[in-house]
Nucleic acid binder design. Structure first.
Length: 210
DNA sequence: CTGACGATTCACT
DNA sequence: GTGAATCGTCAGC
């Protein structure tokens, strides 16, 4: 889909209530096709979400909050719906998640891939890449780098300023959305097999097998 | 205080 | 397919 089909004037921000839904797996699928937007650096950068993963709180061995674990880092996951949870992985990658459900329930959704919609030049500047290709926003580390998201943004509410979500009226055909096990969570035992990863079938920005 | 390691990415074989 | 980069986090002492 060409990037000039949509502009910020026609985007409708998702209210924080949207993220209060009690079923994080439902939300992870529902976010496919929505827009992730950042509006700092005097620039709008945005992409259409094409890959997500749900992390189902205290009963999910793959979740940082498994067994109600509370530490300085995971405390953000117990925040109200629509809070940003950003953490550093492998000492260099900033991974962006959205906290869902009500305060005290540590559900989260990892945004794993976007299709660029606005601000490609700024994304290229941030990533140091020479030109647009599918690696620009493929994989959760690359998503954050392209949109300028860092651990400094953890704890922010996702309502209109800095980082927010939106719809632009474009919907992905339900038949094009497929579910698979999550990536990189082999340590989670049987929970590693749960179909909590959602993606647009065949989309070139999706990480791993598509 | 110490050591092991990760919801990854990329270059290289 | 394999391995390095790189550092905050967290369990254990």
């Amino acid at each position: 889909m060409p990037s000039d089909l949509t502009s910020i004037d026609s985007w409708n921000p998702l209210p924080l209530d949207y993220f209060a839904h009690e079923d994080v797996v439902f939300l992870a699928k529902d976010l496919i096709g929505k827009l992730l937007v950042t509006t700092f650096d005097n620039t709008v950068t945005a992409g259409r979400i094409v890959e997500t993963e749900a992390y189902n709180g205290v009963i999910d061995r793959a979740s940082h909050a498994y067994n109600n674990r509370r530490t300085a880092r995971t405390e953000i996951m117990y925040s109200p719906a629509g809070t940003a949870y950003v953490y550093l992985c492998y000492g260099m990658h900033h991974l962006f998640n959205i906290v869902t459900n009500r305060q005290g329930i540590p559900h989260a959704i990892l945004i794993r891939a976007l299709e660029p919609v606005a601000g490609v030049d700024k994304m290229l500047e941030r990533t140091g890449k020479p030109h647009l290709d599918s690696s620009l926003t493929r994989g959760p580390g690359n998503v954050s780098k392209a949109l300028g998201i860092t651990t400094a943004h953890t704890g922010l509410d996702l309502w209109q300023h800095e980082i927010w979500l939106a719809t632009d009226g474009f919907a992905i055909d339900d038949a094009q959305i497929i579910a698979t096990p999550r990536i990189g969570v082999d340590y989670a035992g049987a929970d590693a097999l749960l179909p909590y990863r959602f993606m647009v079938k065949g989309n070139k920005y999706v990480s791993g097998k598509r």
